[in-house]
Amino acid sequence: MPKMVLTAEYVALNGTDLSDYCRKAELSTEVEEKDVTTYASNGWKELLGGIKSGELGLEFLQDVAASALDSIMWPLFGTVVTFEVRLDNSAVGTSNPKYTGSVLIKSWNPIEGSVGDEAKVSVSYPTSGAVTRATA
Rank of each mutant, 00 (worst) to 15 (best):
L76E: 05
K52R: 12
V123A: 08
S90T: 15
E84M: 14
A134G: 13
S102K: 15
P97R: 07
L48N: 12
I111F: 09
E26M: 01
S67P: 00
L56S: 02
N109G: 07
V81H: 04
S124N: 07
G54F: 03
A136V: 11
V5N: 13
E112W: 06
Y125I: 02
N89P: 02
A91E: 10
W108M: 12
G101A: 10
V121P: 01
G57P: 05
L6T: 15
M4S: 08
A68S: 14
S128C: 02
W74Y: 13
G57K: 15
V121W: 01
S122L: 07
E26K: 09
M1R: 05
K45F: 11
G116H: 06
G113A: 06
G54W: 01
L69Y: 01
K98Q: 10
V123Q: 09
E9W: 01
D35W: 08
D88P: 00
L27D: 02
N109P: 06
L87F: 07
A130I: 08
A119F: 08
E46Y: 14
D63N: 15
D117I: 07
W108T: 01
E112R: 14
G78V: 08
I111N: 09
N14M: 06
S90G: 14
W108H: 13
Y125K: 01
E30G: 10
T100Q: 10
T100V: 09
E46G: 06
V31L: 07
L76D: 01
F60A: 05
V31C: 08
S67Y: 05
A134V: 14
S90L: 12
A136H: 11
D63Y: 04
E33K: 09
Y10E: 09
W44P: 03
S95G: 14
A66D: 02
V31P: 00
T132F: 10
K3I: 11
P97F: 04
G101I: 03
S114H: 11
Y21V: 04
A8C: 05
D17C: 05
S102Y: 11
E33N: 09
T82V: 06
K34Y: 05
T127K: 02
T100S: 13
P110M: 05
V36H: 03
E112N: 13
V103F: 01
T82G: 15
K52S: 15
V5I: 15
